[in-house]
């Protein structure tokens, strides 16, 4: 049995182990569940060091020297020594276990949140600026006919204007649902709110449909892994 066949068999066995919860939560499932959690924790430790702390902190802090095949050493990057101050700051996070000094654990979290929050102005404008612009669609038609087979450039046909109006109405009514969080009085506001709720449902329907496709794609792939890659490919030696 080749290494690939052993690896795939192991994978399929583990997949069945987790899938067994679909029948009932048994000790068989819990065994695999705990292996999965353990592997995740172990790998997180490895990945945290090798992909973040080693590359972004350790190497940046101490610099890197490359040695070519003929033994010539060249400095690939300088050492940025001030980064070593991050170790004690990171250590402050562990003060969460101290009754007296647990407030200090909020300092590294505060720095992380500060870095996130400082970017929100730029993020907001870059995300929504072009979207606000593209939502400002014309709604007054230049001609009262429907869009013909050969539309004339520059004309806004009645059907297109109506479509644009629907677009804007959907956007405003759905958005108003987020803004009007106070008690609504009057037919206009309550009506807009109700329509907003319906429009949101249209959006949620689209999200639901798309999510269904995504989840089914994953189960299709898993079945393909079991039947095509493992059974046909590795065990029966097919494709």
């Amino acid at each position: 049995m080749s290494y690939l066949a052993i690896k795939l068999t192991l994978a399929v066995f583990a997949t069945f182990g987790l899938y067994s919860v679909l029948y009932r939560e048994t000790r068989f499932y819990r065994f695999f569940e705990h292996i999965y959690l353990g592997l995740a924790a172990g790998y997180t430790l490895v990945a945290t060091w090798k992909d973040t702390l080693y590359t972004e902190w350790w190497i940046k802090m101490l610099g890197k020297t490359d040695v070519s095949a003929d033994g010539v050493a060249t400095v690939a990057s300088n050492g940025f020594w001030i980064y070593s101050i991050l170790a004690p700051i990171g250590l402050m996070g562990y003060m969460v276990f101290s009754k007296k000094h647990n407030w200090m654990s909020k300092i590294p979290i505060g720095i992380i949140l500060g870095i996130w929050s400082g970017q929100q102005l730029e993020v907001w404008w870059n995300t929504y600026g072009p979207q606000i612009y593209s939502s400002a669609l014309p709604v007054i038609p230049t001609t009262w006919s429907f869009v013909p087979a050969q539309p004339v450039a520059g004309e806004l046909y009645a059907s297109q204007a109506l479509t644009n109006a629907i677009f804007i109405f959907t956007l405003i009514s759905a958005f108003s649902y987020f803004l009007f969080s106070f008690e609504l009085k009057g037919k206009f506001l309550t009506g807009l709110n109700t329509m907003g709720r319906w429009m949101l449902m249209i959006g949620f329907g689209a999200i639901f449909g798309s999510t269904v496709m995504a989840r089914f794609a994953l189960v299709i792939d898993r079945m393909s892994y079991i039947w095509n890659e493992w059974l046909q490919g590795a065990i029966l030696g097919g494709s």
Partner: peptide, 11 residues
């Protein structure tokens, strides 16, 4: 992916 798709369509 299908999960992310609907939020990318406005972009």
């Amino acid at each position: 992916t299908g999960v992310v798709g609907p939020t990318v369509l406005p972009f």
